[in-house]
Amino acid sequence: MASIRWGRVAGWAVLVLVMVATLFPFYWMLRTSFSSTRSLAAGAGDLLPVDFTLGAYRRVLGLSSTAEAVAEGGSTGTVDFWLYLRNSIVVATTVTAGQVFFSSMAAYAFARLRWPGREAVFTIFVTALMVPPIFTTLPNFVLIKDLGLLNTYLGIILPHLLMTPFAVFFLRQFFLGINASVEEAARLDGAGHVRTFFRIILPMSKGPISTLAILVYITSWNDYFWPLLVGKAENVRVLTVALGIFRSQTPQGSPDWAGLMAATLFAALPMIVLFALLGRRVIDSIGYTGVK
């Protein structure tokens, strides 16, 4: 018993250490975001914000005038924060819903159905993971342009709506782990594949599916270069693209450090709120149904 308790202590020690290593850079971002960009270099080592100001957050929310921004050494530019936030939510939510749903269908076929050529087709799907994005960006952009979808939500969403090799691969690995007896029982009850998929497989895989959904949502939310290319117009511009204004604007220039950090923290905030709200439900729903 004592040994187990020591094990737990050691375990917690490791966990705490990881947490500290994880959180310290966030503290540093927070401290930087409350500093004045002009003073940061002079107070590079200070643990507290240098020349405390909320200016960076005002710039992120688009509340600060050009003159104010210049005075604080920040980036100038108009930011319609709430519009971009809405756009980000629309894009990330649609991508997540579509990608997770269609990928889980495909993954089901690859994991649980028997058909000729299954392994070959799956292997081809997985090799797509290795296609460097540099190949895909240019032709995809041309396609979206030819479809007349530049500066539309659909143009931003489409390449990731139907699948990513990662999502299919991920879910297939989990579907493989489901006990065959569960399906057989369903089949004896006269359920077809569609019904088995919706009634048995999906509910049983809430854990991996919600994990995947979280990861897809984050990836989509953070996507930068693609929406920059196809969705620069104001009405569909997403948060990451809009906040790109805080990155370095000139060759050998310096970013608006405080603005960049404030923007990063602020852009992450909606996701944190979302997971705080949904997280409990997700965890509770990960039952161990179907294992009996």
Partner: peptide
């Protein structure tokens, strides 16, 4: 620019396009 702003460089050779950034440094 940032290193100069922290007082770690006494002088630097620079291009004119960055002038304002140097004068904006506090400290």
């Amino acid at each position: 620019i940032d290193t100069y702003g922290a007082g770690k460089y006494a002088m630097v050779t620079e291009g004119s396009w960055n002038t304002k950034t140097y004068w904006a440094l506090k400290g």
